[in-house]
Every structure is written in C-alpha cells, then in structure tokens.
Design a protein around this nucleic acid. Structure first.
Ligand SMILES: NC(=O)c1ccc[n+]([C@@H]2O[C@H](COP(=O)([O-])OP(=O)(O)OC[C@H]3O[C@@H](n4cnc5c(N)ncnc54)[C@H](O)[C@@H]3O)[C@@H](O)[C@H]2O)c1
Ligand SMILES: NC(=O)c1ccc[n+]([C@@H]2O[C@H](COP(=O)([O-])OP(=O)(O)OC[C@H]3O[C@@H](n4cnc5c(N)ncnc54)[C@H](O)[C@@H]3O)[C@@H](O)[C@H]2O)c1
Lengths: 215, 215
DNA sequence: GTCAATTTGTGAAAAATATCACGACTTATT
DNA sequence: AATAAGTCGTGATATTTTTCACAAATTGAC
C-alpha cells in the first residue's frame, strides 16, 4: 500500500498528533510549531518534525505548521472519514467499560456488536451496542475486521481461532494470553497487569531523575 | 540502584517472563528452553537469551533453564515478595473494572484505596477497596507511591499536581491527557483510543503478511 | 529594505533494540 | 566411549528509533 516506509514508531504517534491538532483547531488556533506540539504531547520536537517529514514538507520554515492544513492531511492519512466497525468479545468488567465509553467521540472506530458466553448478557444492549451469544459469532459477525478481546485468558486461543476463521484481521487483546495467529492477522497486546508491574519495577530499579517516559 | 544497565525494553518483558514461568511451574515442568519460551510469549528466542544474560548466566548449555531457579531469581528481581500499594483515582467505567479485577492474583501490586469526586461513590467499597472523596486525598493517601488515573482528561492536570505534591512517584495514566510531572515522577500512558486507532492504521496501510507484533 | 528571531527539513551521528550465527558445553543414545 | 542432538551465552551485525545541529527559508519589527 501507499507508503509502507513510515516507521512503526511514527505510525503509533499519528493518532496522538491528530487528537491534539483537533484540540488546537477547536481552540481556534491557526498555526503551531513543532516546539509547541512537543510540549503538549511530550515528544521531542525533532522527532515530531521527522515524523511529519515522512509525509513530505507539511510545514513552512520560520512559520511552523498550519493547523487546518495539517489536520486535513492527517484526517485523510488516518482515514478519519470512514468509520471502522469493531466487535467486542467478552462483556465483563473491562468489556462493559468499553461499551459504556463512546470511542467514536474523537475517533474513527466504533464497537458495533458484542458477544458473551453468558446467556444473561446476550440479548441485552449496553451503550447502544447489542450483545449476542458467542455461539452466534459466525452468524452475526458479518464483515467486521477488528475485534477487542476481553474474555478470560483460558478462552483466548479458542475464540481467536474462530475470529480468524471468520476473517478478523486485527485483534486488540486485553487477556494475558499471547495468542497465536496467522501472519496476515495483526495482534496488539495491552496487558494491564504487566504495565503496572513494569511501572513498579522502573520505580524501584531506575535512578530517580530520568526524564524519559515510556509508552 | 543495583543494575541500571538493563535496557528498558528488557525490563518491560520481565513481568511477561515471570508470569509464564509461574504457569510452567504450576504445570509441574522443571526445565524450559529459550525456544519453548519464545513460542509461548512470542518473543524471539535470541532476544530472550539476551534479556536473561543481563542478569548473568542463568541457564545451562544443552539443557536450558531450570524453571524453579529462574522463577526464584525473577521473584527477587521483580520484588514479587513485597506488595506495592496503589491508589486508584476515578471510579467510573474503567476504574470500577480495575477495582473488580483482582490484580494481586499473579502480581505484586494491590489497589488499596480509591478516590472519586462523586459523593455518591465515596464512602462505599468496590471489590473490597474503600472509596474516599477526592477532597480527602491528602488526608487518606498515606505513603502510597503509585497511582492509577482513570478520571476525565480535563481533571488530569489538576489531580496530578495534587498527587505529585503528596509524594506519588509513579502514575499509570489512562486519560488521553499527556500530563506534566517533575523529572523524578514516572508516567506510563495507556491510551486505549490511540491503541485502537493505531491498530486500524496498521491494518489499512501495512502489507498483509508481516509477522511482527507490536506492543 | 534590513536585520534579528523563528522554525522547518534533513544529513549525520548516536542510542537503543533485535537478530544472526557459532563456539562451548550438556545430555542422551547406542 | 563415541557420537548426535540440543541449547546457552555472546561477539558481531543489522535494524530501528531518536537526537543533534545547521543551512535555508520565512516572518515581523522598525
Ligand atoms: N478488569 C481488569 O481490570 C483487567 C485487568 C487486567 C487484565 N484483564 C484481563 O481482561 C480480560 C477480561 O477481564 P474482565 O475483568 O473483564 O473479566 P470478566 O470475568 O469480568 O469478564 C469476562 C467476560 O467474558 C465472558 N466470556 C467467558 N468466556 C467467553 C467466551 N468463550 N466467549 C465470549 N465471552 C466469554 C464472561 O461471561 C464474562 O462476561 C481477562 O483476560 C483479564 O485477565 C482485566
Ligand atoms: N472507559 C473506556 O473505555 C475508556 C477508553 C479510553 C479512554 N478512557 C479514558 O479513561 C478515563 C476514565 O474513563 P471512564 O470511562 O472510566 O470515565 P467515567 O466518566 O466513567 O469515570 C470518571 C470518574 O472520575 C470521577 N471524577 C471526575 N472528576 C474527578 C476528580 N477531580 N477527582 C476524582 N474523581 C473524579 C467521576 O466522578 C467518575 O466516576 C477518561 O479520561 C477516558 O477518556 C476510557
């Protein structure tokens, strides 16, 4: 596809830039420098300029970046105009929180349906999202290509296999299980327990005056 | 402190290794190779050996690693024997999910108290964790050094300042706000909306046959 | 019009991370 | 005892990411 030359580290920062530019525009600001952006999003200004430069010369020397223009550019780049449908699997503590939260506020993704193994949950709705029984996954999933996994770790492999068979291409996995998928399926792990443990480890074992922040 | 030579990337993987070794031990396995570990946690086996090597020679050539020994070693390294107290700020959708989830299951951290601005929430308990009013933060926080932030983004800066004044050294920030802290305070951002957007971006813009998984 | 102050875009360097590949040693087998 | 198979630890190399630092361009003040 278009430019697969954009570094992954850069790609992960794009939504962050986009969100902040949106805020700027709502505040009525028309221009912004990499230095200002840097202070707001806590990314080195040289890194920001480098990130932007992968898409061409978006700014003007001595001036900075035009907010409107930059925002328009990123809107296209991040496909903010088309909504990506997402399925949520596992309507427990975490899943319920996600359903109640309106991801679309600032965003191009939307949870359109959810599944759970508990018959007391299926048939209902949370946050306007219908919940189906997991047995009906194949029937109801339709053409959705992205799934959020918030089920017990023990179920992760089995359910993942079904999702993949049905054509899911991206999984945001909140279970501690490291699931196996074919090469054409992308998995991002978000492991909250590990994030907390890692934070504690850094606190205890690293000098107290670093300035790095770790994603 | 002891060895600050351990790369951050390695440090972030330690809790993952630890968790898997625990599983192995519960299954009664006594030895494990970097190759097996690699398949389970989806990290290249050379990377695993390199990670371990920062702590010295923990394995035996031709044999692999002794599960018991390795586990004991990591238990000490990750301070699994002492419990770190954590405060949770903001008992909303996400905060409630965290309180209901038992972080201590596999873990050395425990949410011991929570705060919220809503008077209907303070005074109650969720998952055994008492909820106080945010006005009582300074009074109740005690010696807790780590906080989880699950409040609206608009409140993030104000509350962070109070946390920092009270001596908090580590913040797990779930709000979209990029908070400012002194150099001796460590912030890890977990930005769920951005994770989802980044996943969608990768799906749309990257070749469909990569094998990398992105943290 | 001149000049000081900004700020980009980027070559080059540095730093961080991941991977290759192999010698050395261990274990298991016959 | 000899041999084959397995595995670590690590020097070397590759890749990725960040940062430095400065020429070139622009702006804004007077
Ligand atoms: N809640 C947290 O704070 C937290 C923190 C870290 C990790 N996690 C992980 O996130 C995942 C979800 O956590 P949770 O607290 O929401 O758990 P939960 O038990 O509250 O919810 C799990 C839900 O999945 C449903 N389920 C079970 N098997 C299923 C299946 N085969 N198909 C569809 N649905 C099924 C259950 O009915 C339940 O509603 C777990 O893997 C957990 O380890 C949660
Ligand atoms: N829920 C999600 O799925 C989700 C996803 C992505 C990001 N987030 C972010 O996580 C944060 C929390 O999300 P949520 O859905 O739980 O929100 P929420 O509105 O359900 O909960 C926020 C809670 O914080 C409390 N609060 C408000 N101001 C406070 C203050 N000054 N001090 C203490 N408590 C205060 C509120 O009373 C409420 O209980 C938000 O910043 C949100 O953007 C949430």
């Amino acid at each position: 596809m278009e430019q697969n030359k954009i570094p992954q580290a850069t790609a992960k920062r794009l939504p962050l830039y986009y969100r902040f530019l949106n805020n700027l525009q709502m505040q009525g600001k028309t221009r912004v420098s990499s230095k200002e952006l840097s202070e707001a999003v806590k990314v080195d200004s040289a890194t920001i300029r480098r990130d932007f430069s992968y898409f061409g010369a978006l700014g003007k020397k001595g001036y900075g970046y035009n907010v409107e223009y930059l925002l328009g550019f990123f809107r296209k780049t991040l496909d903010q105009d088309e909504l990506t449908d997402v399925a949520l699997i596992g309507v427990g503590n975490l899943g319920t929180a996600f359903l109640n939260y309106n991801f679309t506020k600032n965003n191009n993704t939307k949870i359109v349906l959810a599944f759970d193994a508990d018959p007391n949950k299926s048939g209902k709705e949370i946050g306007g999202v219908p919940i189906f029984h997991i047995d009906d996954l194949e029937e109801k999933l339709g053409n959705v290509k992205v799934a959020i996994l918030t089920i017990p770790a023990t179920e992760a492999d089995r359910v993942t296999e079904r999702l993949v068979s049905k054509g899911i291409k991206g999984i945001l996995n909140f279970t501690p299980a490291r699931i196996s998928v074919p090469d054409d399926v992308r998995v991002h792990h978000i492991d909250l327990a590990i994030e907390l443990q890692a934070l504690v480890y850094f606190l205890k074992h690293y000098p107290l005056d670093t300035k790095e922040e770790v994603l």
